[in-house]
Nucleic acid binder design. Structure first.
Lengths: 138, 138
DNA sequence: TTTTAGTCCATCTTTTTTATAGGTTTTATG
DNA sequence: CATAAAACCTATAAAAAAGATGGACTAAAA
C-alpha cells in the first residue's frame, strides 16, 4: 500500500491541478478541502517543491502551484519520490535495486522472474498515466 | 514492497516445494539454506500452517511440508496472508476495502480508476501464478 | 512596519516490522 | 519408560518507519 504521505500528495496535486487558474493556493485551503493535517501537508508540499514539481510564493497572496502541466507529471514520479520503490522486491527494483540475499542466482530464480513481470505491468500504468489522468471526471 | 516476512515465506515455500520427496523438512534446514533467522522463520511457518498451506510433524523425524501441490498455491494467497492488501490504496482493495477519506465521490475519482487498473494488472499475475511458477528453473 | 504565508528543522508519538527468548508439548526410538 | 528431537506457543524487546506537531525564521505584499 502507498503511505498516507503519498496518498495525501496525490490529493493535494489533484486539487492544485483543478485550480490552476486561481494562482497560488494556500496550504491551509488544500488541507481543509482534502481533510489533511495542515502541518503534515506542509512537509509533503515542501518535498514536492524541492523535487521541482511544485513552485511556491511566500507572503500575502502566496501559496503553492504546479511547475509543470498535469500531463507532464507521471504518477510513478510521485510514488518514487515519497514512497520509494514501486517493485515488490528489492531485487527487481529499477531505481532501488538490492541483491537478493536468500537466493543463489537471480538469473534462474522464478520469484525474480514473476516479480519482474508484476513490476512491468505496474510501471506500464504508473509511468504512462499522469496527474492529468487522475483528475475528477466531469 | 513486500515485507521481509513475506519474502522469507516465499523462499521457504520454494525450498519445501523443491524437496517434497524428502518428507518433512526441519525449520533449521530451511533457515540455514535460505539464510533466514531460525526463530523468525518459525513464526512464519506457523502462520502458514495455521492457514492450511503447510502441515507439520512434531518430534524426531518431524518438520514442515506442503499441504497442497505447488500449483494449487497462488502467490496472491501468501501475500494477503502475511502482508495484507495487494492494492496500492485502501479504496481499491478487494479484500481490505476502506472508503477514501480525502475524496468526495469514488465513482468520479480518477485516482480510484487508475489504481483499480494497477490492482487488476497486478492480480492478473499474482492470482494466476502459483508456487509452481516460482521454482528455480533448470 | 505589520501581517501573511511559506521555510526549515527538530522532536515526538504511535504503529509496524523484525527479531529473540524461553518454556511446553508431541513423537520417535532405544 | 526415558530421552532427545523438533514443532508449538506466548511474550516481549529492539529497531525502523509512519504520522504528526511546534516554533522560530524569512520573504513579500500592502
Amino acid at each position: 500500500m502507498l503511505s498516507k504521505k503519498t496518498q495525501y500528495a496525490f490529493h493535494a496535486l489533484i486539487y492544485l491541478a483543478e485550480n490552476v487558474d486561481k494562482g497560488p493556493i494556500l496550504i491551509s485551503e488544500i488541507a481543509a478541502e482534502k481533510s489533511i493535517s495542515i502541518k503534515f501537508l506542509e512537509n509533503i508540499l515542501l518535498e514536492l517543491k524541492n523535487a521541482g514539481i511544485l513552485g511556491s510564493k511566500k507572503g500575502k497572496g502566496g501559496g503553492y502551484y504546479l511547475m509543470r502541466t498535469p500531463k507532464e507529471i507521471p504518477l510513478a514520479r510521485i510514488i518514487r519520490l515519497l514512497d520509494g520503490p514501486i517493485a515488490l522486491l528489492p531485487c527487481v527494483s529499477l531505481n532501488y535495486y538490492e541483491r537478493c540475499e536468500n537466493c543463489k542466482d537471480e538469473a534462474v530464480c522464478g520469484l525474480h522472474e514473476v516479480m519482474s513481470k508484476v513490476r512491468d505491468a505496474t510501471l506500464k500504468l504508473l509511468e504512462n498515466k499522469s496527474l492529468k489522468d487522475i483528475l475528477t471526471r466531469d
